[in-house]
C-alpha cells in the first residue's frame, strides 16, 4: 500500500507515521509537503499530528487552506481512505470533511497520557481488523481535543454508526473519569458518512512497538492494509 503523509509547516507526527508505515509495516510512504497539489497514485492519505501553522488562530484553521488540501478533498471524494490524527482530525473538521469541532480541553490544560479506547464499529477501513467492543491503549497529546457537535449532528453520528472510538477505562466502560478532555459522549474518533475519512485524537503511530509501551496502534494500520487487500 502507498501512503502520502502530509507535512504542513509545524506538523510533527509526520516522522512517526512515516517510520511506522515503512520500518515497522514495510509499506511505501512519502512525506508530502503541503504545497504539492497532486495525490494521484496514493492509496491512503495521512494527516499527522502537530501544530500546523503553530495552531495560530485556531488549530487546523490555516492548514485547511494549504494547497494540498484540494487534493486531499478529491482523494476523499473518490472514496479512498484519509486518516487524520490529532491535528489532522482538527484540520479535517476545519475543512468540512468531518462534522463538529475540537475545542479546548475542558480542564484547559494540554494533556499527554496513555488512554484506553473502545472500538465502537468495525465496518470501516480503519477498524476492520478489530472486534466491536475491543479496548485499545495508546497515547493522546493535545490541548484542543474536546469533541463537540450540535445535537442533530451528534444524533446522526450515533444513528449512522460513525462514532468509531470512545475513551473508556481499561475494562471498556465508557465513564466520565476515563474522558481525558471533556469530549461529548467520550468521543475520540469519528468517520464521515461514507466511512472513508477518519479523524481521531489519539496517536496510533505512537503505539506500534512493545519497546515504547504498546502495540495496539497496529490494529488501525493493519485494518487499512486488510481493507485494501479485500477491495
Amino acid at each position: 500500500m502507498r501512503f502520502a503523509v502530509i507535512v504542513f509547516p509545524g506538523t510533527w507526527s509526520d516522522y512517526d507515521c512515516h517510520y511506522v508505515l515503512t520500518s515497522i509495516l514495510g509499506q511505501e510512504a512519502d512525506l508530502v509537503w503541503h504545497r504539492q497539489t497532486d495525490l494521484a497514485g496514493y492509496d491512503c492519505v495521512v494527516l499527522p499530528g502537530g501544530f500546523s501553522y503553530g495552531d495560530y488562530l485556531r488549530p487546523g484553521a490555516i492548514a485547511r487552506f494549504s494547497p494540498v488540501m484540494e487534493a486531499v478533498v478529491k482523494h476523499a471524494q473518490a472514496g479512498r481512505p484519509v486518516i487524520g490524527i490529532c491535528n489532522g482530525f482538527q484540520i479535517l473538521c476545519e475543512a468540512g470533511l468531518l462534522p463538529g469541532a475540537l475545542l479546548r480541553n475542558e480542564h484547559l490544560q494540554y494533556r499527554c497520557q496513555w488512554v484506553h479506547l473502545r472500538v465502537e464499529v468495525c465496518h470501516n477501513p480503519f477498524t476492520v481488523a478489530c472486534s466491536p467492543g475491543q479496548v485499545l491503549r495508546m497515547p493522546i497529546s493535545h490541548g484542543e481535543g474536546r469533541y463537540y457537535a450540535d445535537p442533530e449532528t451528534l444524533d446522526s453520528l450515533k444513528r449512522e454508526g460513525r462514532i468509531v472510538f470512545r475513551y473508556c477505562d481499561p475494562k471498556g466502560e465508557v465513564t466520565r473519569q476515563a474522558n481525558p478532555n471533556g469530549s461529548l459522549e467520550n468521543i475520540a474518533g469519528i468517520v464521515n458518512r461514507e466511512g472513508n475519512v477518519l479523524g481521531m485524537m489519539p496517536h496510533p503511530e505512537r503505539a506500534c512497538e512493545a519497546l515504547l509501551g504498546g502495540e495496539d496502534g497496529l490494529f488501525i494500520w493493519r485494518s487499512l492494509l486488510r481493507w485494501a487487500g479485500s477491495c
Binding site: 510533527w12 507526527s13 516522522y15 512517526d16 517510520y19 511506522v20 520500518s23 499530528g49 490544560q109 494540554y110 494533556r111 499527554c112 497520557q113 496513555w114 497515547p139 497529546s141 496517536h203 503511530e205 505512537r206 506500534c208 512497538e209 519497546l211 515504547l212 509501551g213
Partner: peptide, 26 residues
C-alpha cells in the same frame, strides 16, 4: 509532566516519573 508531550518522535522507552528517561536510537 502530563502537560508535556513525552512521546513524540517515537523514541521514549519508559514513561515519565522513572529514575531516568530513556530514548532509543532508531
Amino acid at each position: 509532566y502530563q502537560q508535556y508531550d513525552q512521546s513524540v518522535l517515537n523514541n521514549t522507552v519508559v514513561e515519565a516519573g522513572a529514575d531516568a528517561a530513556v530514548l532509543r536510537i532508531k
